[in-house]
Simulated scan of single mutants.
Amino acid sequence: MAGAVAAVLLAGCGLDGELSGRAADGTGSQGGDGGSTGVSPLDNPKGTGRGLGTIRSAGDRAEAVKIIEKVATKGRGAKTGYDRDEFGYAWADNAADIPFAGNGCDTRNDVLARDGDDLKYRSGSNCVLASMTLHDPYTGTTIKWTKQQAAEVQIDHVMPLSYDWQMGASRWSKAKRVQIANDPLNLLPVDGSANSSKGDSGPATWLPPARGIRCSYAVRFAQVALKYDLPVTAPDKEAMLAQCR
């Protein structure tokens, strides 16, 4: 990981010191632990730390339940009027008051650099990644990614934008919608097929294949909901609590 941190700093993309000192063991198996090289969401409330680490201890799981219990519930509203453009153009660097914004690199490359190892940049660019290694928290697998196969790694909005829209973001200002769309707290680079299978599902209908990361995923979903004062559906909250109990 030290090499990855050095590459990021040399690239000048402005990622902060929370990237340093993270282990990268390359382990993991489909449906297993997942997230072994990431930071626990309990220790990463701003989303600037690497990836999504597992929550293992009974004490931490109890803390996770307390966070999820704070989330309000309501029914899912209509999707009428939703369009991705309502949340700004994809991976804008101009969102206000969120980490990494305004550093000269687009949001996608920021979070790839945050979570990846063995970072290599496109010739002549300080931001655009050409290749990297990702230890995917959702599947527990290691992906050797190149830009030529860009869709192999996709950036997941943990709390999907369409879901946000239906739970209240349709009434927000455009600036606030741009924030949640580019906030690193709400973004994870993951296996493309896993992300595609998720769509705009909440936790009651979709959870990461790696069972060991599901409590962490539920906490991250809750962290986004609480930061942006968004409710979740009652079935989604129950599913989130079930992952950590």
Results as ranks from 00 to 15, higher is better:
202 G>I: 02
230 L>A: 03
206 W>V: 03
210 A>E: 07
232 V>R: 03
236 D>H: 03
203 P>C: 01
220 R>Q: 15
219 V>K: 01
211 R>D: 00
203 P>W: 03
210 A>W: 13
234 A>V: 10
235 P>N: 05
221 F>L: 12
207 L>I: 10
230 L>C: 03
225 A>C: 05
224 V>A: 09
217 Y>W: 14
220 R>T: 00
209 P>I: 01
228 Y>N: 01
208 P>L: 05
222 A>T: 09
209 P>Y: 08
233 T>L: 11
204 A>Q: 13
222 A>K: 04
231 P>E: 09
233 T>Y: 11
217 Y>P: 01
235 P>K: 03
220 R>G: 11
209 P>S: 04
233 T>F: 11
211 R>G: 14
205 T>D: 15
231 P>T: 05
219 V>W: 05
202 G>C: 02
218 A>D: 15
235 P>H: 06
234 A>E: 15
223 Q>A: 09
224 V>W: 11
233 T>H: 10
221 F>T: 11
237 K>C: 12
210 A>G: 06
231 P>I: 08
205 T>G: 13
203 P>G: 03
203 P>H: 03
237 K>L: 10
213 I>S: 06
209 P>L: 01
228 Y>D: 06
202 G>E: 00
228 Y>Q: 04
223 Q>I: 07
224 V>G: 05
236 D>K: 02
213 I>Y: 14
227 K>W: 14
220 R>S: 13
212 G>L: 09
236 D>P: 02
211 R>C: 12
235 P>D: 00
232 V>N: 02
215 C>N: 10
217 Y>F: 14
226 L>Q: 02
205 T>F: 12
238 E>T: 15
236 D>T: 04
232 V>Y: 10
232 V>W: 10
225 A>E: 06
225 A>S: 07
213 I>K: 04
214 R>H: 09
211 R>W: 11
223 Q>F: 10
227 K>A: 14
224 V>E: 00
214 R>T: 08
223 Q>W: 10
216 S>K: 00
212 G>V: 08
228 Y>G: 04
217 Y>G: 01
221 F>N: 08
222 A>Q: 07
205 T>L: 12
209 P>N: 03
205 T>K: 14
234 A>K: 13
236 D>L: 04
226 L>M: 05
235 P>A: 00
230 L>E: 08
219 V>G: 03
214 R>E: 06
232 V>C: 07
210 A>D: 08
206 W>D: 04
237 K>W: 14
210 A>H: 09
217 Y>L: 04
223 Q>E: 15
216 S>L: 12
216 S>Q: 12
210 A>T: 01
220 R>D: 09
213 I>A: 06
205 T>E: 15
224 V>P: 01
232 V>T: 11
209 P>C: 02
234 A>W: 11
214 R>K: 07
236 D>Y: 10
202 G>R: 01
236 D>I: 04
221 F>E: 00
208 P>Y: 13
209 P>K: 01
209 P>E: 08
204 A>P: 09
214 R>L: 05
229 D>G: 08
236 D>N: 06
236 D>C: 02
